[in-house]
C-alpha cells in the first residue's frame, strides 16, 4: 500500500478536490483505494456521500486505537473506493497526538493493518500546521501539494515545503514529493492570465519543472462534479480530467519502480 497525501497549509488550495477526483480515477483504473478524511471540516466525507453517526467509529478512534482499523472503514457507492470518515470530533486528536511521544508516527502505524488490502491510501489533510497535519505527513510515502495559481497559493507552497523539510530533518518523514498541482489556473478564452502564468512559473522554479503537474483549470465543472458525485466525463468535459490522468500514470510508474 502506497500512502499518498494531499497537503497544503492554506485553505482553498484544492486538497479535497484533488483527493476526490484522483481517488475516483484510481478506483476506476482498478486500484483498491482507501481515502482518509484527515480534516475535521469533513468535506471529503460529505462529498463521498457518507453521513457519520455520532456513535460510529471515525478517524479519531483509529488514531486513538480505540477501535480496529477495519471498524472505521466504510464502503462508498463507488466500486473499489473505501473511506475512513471524520467529523468535528477529530479536533480531539490534537490533544492525544501532542501527549503521545511520537505524534508524527501515530497515523502511519494505525493505517499499517491496511497493507495488503489496499493498493493506495489517499489522505486529505487539514489546512493548518497542527498535530494532525504532522501525523499525516509522518504517514506519507508520497506527497501531492495542490496549490492555487495565485500569490497566496505560491506562499502556501513555500510554507508547506518548509513544514515537510522540518519533519524530514527530524527523521519523522521520508516522503517523496510526487507533484505540485497548480489549482484554479485561470484562462480567458485561449489565453492564460498573467497571474496564473507567472505563479506557475515560480512554482516550477521552486520545485523543478518535472514536479509541477498539469494544472487544474478554473472551472465550475469541478465543483459540479464533486457536489453531484459525478465524474468530469459524466459532465461532458473529460479534457478537464487530464491532470488526474497524468497523476494516475505517474502513480503507475511509481508502483512499477517499487515492484
Amino acid at each position: 500500500m502506497q500512502t499518498l497525501i494531499s497537503l497544503s497549509l492554506a485553505g482553498g488550495q484544492g486538497k479535497t478536490t484533488t483527493v476526490i477526483l484522483l481517488s475516483k480515477h484510481l478506483a476506476a483504473a482498478g486500484y483498491t483505494v482507501l481515502v482518509v478524511d484527515g480534516d475535521p471540516q469533513s468535506n471529503l466525507t460529505t462529498f463521498l456521500g457518507h453521513e457519520v453517526a455520532q456513535n460510529e467509529p471515525t478517524l479519531l478512534e483509529v488514531m486513538k486505537a480505540s477501535v480496529q482499523l477495519e471498524d472505521a472503514i466504510y464502503e462508498t457507492d463507488i466500486a473499489n473506493l473505501y473511506l475512513i470518515p471524520s467529523d468535528d470530533g477529530l479536533d480531539n486528536a490534537q490533544e492525544y497526538l501532542s501527549t503521545t511521544g511520537m505524534g508524527a508516527m501515530v497515523l502511519g502505524k494505525r493505517l499499517s493493518p491496511g497493507q495488503g488490502t489496499f493498493d493506495i491510501c489517499l489522505i486529505d489533510s487539514p489546512p493548518q500546521r497542527s498535530q494532525i497535519c504532522k501525523s499525516i505527513i509522518g504517514a506519507a510515502d508520497q506527497i501531492l501539494i495542490p496549490c492555487e495559481a495565485t500569490v497566496k497559493g505560491y506562499g502556501s507552497l513555500v510554507r508547506t515545503l518548509e513544514a515537510v523539510n522540518e519533519l524530514k530533518d527530524l527523521g519523522a518523514s521520508d516522503a517523496n514529493l510526487l507533484g505540485v498541482i497548480p489549482f484554479r489556473d485561470r484562462w480567458v478564452g485561449a489565453n492564460q492570465t498573467q497571474e496564473s502564468r507567472s505563479v506557475i512559473e515560480a512554482m516550477r522554479e521552486e520545485v523543478g519543472e518535472e514536479i509541477v503537474l498539469p494544472s487544474i483549470r478554473e472551472s465550475e465543472k469541478f465543483k459540479k462534479a464533486i457536489s453531484q458525485q459525478a465524474t468530469l466525463a459524466d459532465l461532458g468535459v473529460p479534457d478537464l480530467a487530464y491532470p488526474f490522468d497524468v497523476l494516475v500514470e505517474r502513480i503507475k510508474q511509481m508502483e512499477a519502480v517499487a515492484a
Binding site: A53, Q54, E61, V67, D71, D87, D88, G89, N92
Partner: peptide, 15 residues
C-alpha cells in the same frame, strides 16, 4: 452499522 463498535465522541468546540 450494528456490527461496528459503538463509540462516544465529543464534537463540541468546548471540551
Amino acid at each position: 452499522k450494528n456490527e461496528r463498535p459503538s463509540v462516544e465522541r465529543n464534537t463540541s468546540l468546548v471540551q
